[in-house]
């Protein structure tokens, strides 16, 4: 214990110089104490993956990894958001996303309110902002919003004081789905240089946009593939390659993320028949034989078995579709944890 250094005033060699030097080391040491010192999380809202940096996506994925461990315990609950309230505002149908956010909030010990447009005052003509302001007036800390209009969560982020998490806005983005897809891939593969192909209705897919933004930021290569009518103009500008012939890209693909045909958003005929779509772009067992042996199959669900994906593929050994659902809870815990704490922190 002889060498216990006391840089305290009266101790050892005196003098301003010596004291300044110890102060420097104290700061440096404090930096090192910062438990790994990645970029701290400061965003109150999660509206898109477009607005996140590579480091911020990394923070969310790493936190999700720790939360995944919590989900395997006997007591699947931590007290981190005790006393906080999360409100699910869903203006569109959903099973997975809403339930997943609900479970995520409960695992963090937050209270959760579920609001669904059907059966609410929205049917009496209440506006989105008014509905949300009322939920906020009931002291919600975080609002999770799904809406058929692109930009709905952006609007609420501007109008509300609480945190806003986008759970899908029109055909814009679905950031937590993008994160959980990337998380599921990252568990199995190195993202750098990985070739991910998104197949199907790219035009109407918010999942596709979130995937493209996130994957490209993390160094993967993304190809979108579908009938020309379902590939939006300008998608190359955000960094995706475009292909119309699935069989020509399949041999170089590491991950296939198969998207649903969004009949509810299609006004008009985008392809001649469902049967023709299934023949050209459906992932069947035979078609999958052209792909690499270790190809990974993802689907955000709900899926149409027999149209965009064959039942044998969905349930086969390449598929990580149900792992996506498990990972979704961990990813949403990470998102709720960071956004909710950012809005209740000392700076807000």
């Amino acid at each position: 214990m002889a060498t216990t250094t006391r840089a305290n005033a009266a101790a050892t060699a005196a003098g301003a110089g010596a004291r300044a030097a110890t102060r420097d080391t104290a700061v440096a040491a404090a930096d090192r104490e910062g438990r790994g010192t990645p970029a701290p999380w400061a965003k109150r809202h999660l509206l898109s993956l477009e607005e996140l940096s590579c480091d911020e996506i990394g923070v969310l994925l790493d936190t999700a990894e720790s939360f995944k461990e919590v989900l395997t315990r006997d007591v699947k609950k931590v007290p981190s958001l005790r006393g906080k309230t999360v409100a699910n505002l869903f203006f569109e149908p959903s099973t997975r996303t809403r339930t997943s956010f609900e479970i995520a909030a409960k695992r963090l010990s937050a209270d959760i309110i579920n609001f669904q447009a059907a059966g609410s005052s929205v049917q009496k003509g209440e506006s989105l902002v008014d509905t949300a302001l009322n939920i906020q007036a009931m002291q919600a800390d975080t609002v999770v919003v799904r809406h058929a209009s692109s930009g709905a969560s952006q609007l609420l982020a501007r109008e509300l004081d609480c945190s806003v998490v986008n759970a899908g806005d029109g055909i814009h983005e679905h950031p937590t789905q993008g994160l959980l897809d990337i998380f599921t891939i990252r568990e199995r593969r190195d993202l750098e240089g990985l070739h991910v192909c998104l197949v199907g209705d790219i035009r109407h897919s918010r999942v596709a946009r979130s995937n493209i933004w996130g994957l490209i930021k993390l160094g993967a290569q993304v190809t979108v593939c579908g009938p020309p009518t379902l590939i939006p103009h300008g998608i190359e500008e955000i960094g995706a390659n475009v292909a119309y012939d699935l069989d020509s890209v399949l041999p170089t693909v590491d991950v296939l993320n198969i998207l649903r045909i969004q009949f509810e958003r299609q006004h008009g005929a985008f392809f001649p028949s469902i049967r023709e779509y299934a023949v050209e772009y459906g992932i069947s067992v035979e078609r999958l034989r052209q792909a690499r042996e270790e190809v990974l199959i993802l689907h955000p669900q709900p899926m149409h078995r027999g149209i965009e994906i064959a039942a044998e593929v969905a349930d086969g050994h390449h598929s990580a579709i149900l792992d996506q659902v498990t990972n979704g809870v961990a990813v949403r815990m990470a998102v709720l944890f960071h956004t909710t704490l950012a809005s209740s922190g000392p700076d807000s």
């Binding site: 990645p38 790493d62 936190t63 720790s66």
Partner: peptide, 20 residues
């Protein structure tokens, strides 16, 4: 970190490590 009593007031957000 998930059990801290000052989670809402810490200046820099904690990095959540794995529990094993």
């Amino acid at each position: 970190n998930l059990y801290r009593d000052d989670l809402s007031s810490v200046a820099s957000y904690p990095v959540i490590g794995k529990t094993e």
